[in-house]
Design a protein around this nucleic acid. Structure first.
Lengths: 192, 192, 192, 192
DNA sequence: TATGAATGAGCTTTCATTCAT
DNA sequence: AATGAATGAAAGCTCATTCAT
């Protein structure tokens, strides 16, 4: 990938993040790079492809990290802690990309459905495996509905896109610890 | 509010839900009502206002319910259970409106900033109070960051807009019980 | 069809005639009508549809006239004279439309293929019937290839679009007489 | 003319033939040659020039052939037979070029007007001479309008571009015989 | 001889909105 | 209360052409 291509993807990430996919124009993105709109189309073939490119890399990375975790032999508790950490860390490492991914998923699904590795349902599935394993070993409660519980964790984590800003009061490491702890043990005070 | 106005808001909710705010056209909405595009403008002054109208009522209702809960004298545990239940129930009672609210909030903030009662930060604030009360009475853990914890619960609940469909395998009552239980006690198995 | 629609079709015919379909712009056509480009799209749904509309009416009329002639009980000679006359007269009655039809047929075929009545092969077929009848009665030579002979007549007639201008030295009635005579009896001098 | 230049002209002929001048892109043509778009401009100066180059050679050849025929001392009948044959044969020898010539003439006239030798009116003039000679010797009918009769023959012949395909049911030699016979003696059956 | 990169100009089409009736 | 007609503005995208290398 050339430097220009990287610039374009970064610019698109920024503009999609600021304005949303539909409200962002290819003119905006080109201006952000400092090139003409027509030049954009020398590198990409459509605005939709650009959305995909913005999102692809960080997502593949996150999915791969969580896949590693699924396959590792670790207590479920640790797996969950690590997976939440990886998910939240992605917001730090590639904020606008993750924002765009979460916010514009409905616009992307059509494009992503063909790409097996990046499909959101693959991620959902990985998480279900983690929970399944914990239930199997007796580490996790069996009375909770698995898909719904995964959606719950997805919601907790993805919601960061609406409020989290890098360099704010809380870093993602702290947040991950808190969210993992809350998810695993609840927010109720209990006698140690 | 006349019957026509209600029809228009319902139609807009449906279309915004199906296509998203930007992709939805005023023509689509008018067609859904069975009137001409121009007639729409006899009742509303802009597409953006329509977005606001779609979202207002159910949101005000939800905010008011949670405000009641805040003011009630109940154990924090119960308050949290009830508030989560109210939030999820809103998806059943007015799914498209809630969907639009959650998905299009970023497009709305500009409009909502002036309207104190419906501002999302008011809702955030109500929840912080609930948690605060619990911490004060010792019912809830004090080691969790309050704003972040509220965002966590918001995320869990709001994420329903991405997957929940009325009449599916799980109803919102069941879901609310599970989510409240998970949030309060965690998903880890523990000796009763 | 409203007056505006007629104006638009006439304007499109003129502009397509002057510049060709591809080189003509929707702006040109709108300007010719005296409206905005966007207004055009209140009446039509695409530039391609406009091409079809320009061509439809005169073509349907011509096809119907020739169909009448096929069904009439007349000597083949007369049928051929009349059909050539009808074809050339179309250039007088609706010059730009006929020009566009002949010149842009390759661009139209895709659109016309679905519309049975206006398909160019239907016209070709009508003419083959006329010639067939003449061969059957012994009025016409049987040694000529029928399809090729029809194409020959089509070529003679359609070529007018490249040179004929209304109000010029020759009118289509005169031309039709000459072309029919040449086609039927040849251009060789022969002893009466 | 280098080999590359010939390749480019051949590729342009093919692409213009398949898509038409306006719909064909310089990228298409370059791809057909197997070079980059920019490289094209090392050999040619504009797309319009390419159109001219595509058409020039076969046209000059045809014009020259017919000029020879005009100057030969032969019966008019023979001259007409030979000229029609030459014209149709050109479709066999250089189909795409001839196609482009006939179909895109209106786009070319501007370019060709300056080039005396290739101007279509020169060709028209040669044919008028042939017919004139025949009228003068009494071989041809004098009651037909000369220009219109030449246009008639042009139409017959040029129309091949719309339907003739090399290797089809009829070859151009056969066709030329039929067309010449029809033009000279008519399509009416007559007692030998 | 060839090309990667760039662009100005322009294209068709869409859309929220207006307004006279 | 309703709408047919109109439009300004802008969108995504294409293309012939240029030019430094």
């Amino acid at each position: 990938m050339t430097k220009r291509e990287q610039e374009i993807i970064a610019a698109a990430a920024k503009v999609f993040n600021e304005k949303g996919y539909h409200a962002a124009t290819t003119r905006d993105i080109a201006a952000e790079v400092g090139i003409q709109q027509a030049t954009l189309y020398y590198y990409i073939s459509s605005k939709e492809e650009l959305l995909y490119l913005v999102v692809r890399e960080p997502i593949v990375r996150l999915y791969d990290q969580v896949e590693e975790i699924v396959k590792a032999s670790l207590p479920s508790r640790t797996k969950i802690e690590r997976a939440i950490h990886a998910h939240l860390a992605a917001f730090d490492e590639s904020y606008p990309h993750m924002f765009v991914y979460v916010q514009e998923l409905p616009n992307l699904i059509h494009t992503l459905q063909d790409k097996i590795r990046e499909s959101p349902s693959r991620y959902q599935h990985l998480w279900e495996e983690i929970l399944q394993q914990g239930v199997a070993t007796g580490e996790l409660r069996a009375d909770l509905d698995m898909p719904a519980t995964v959606f719950m964790i997805m919601g907790m984590c993805n919601w960061l896109h609406r409020w989290y800003r890098k360099g704010g009061r809380l870093d993602t490491a702290t947040l991950a610890r808190q969210y993992a702890s809350a998810a695993l043990d609840g927010i109720t005070a209990r006698p140690s």
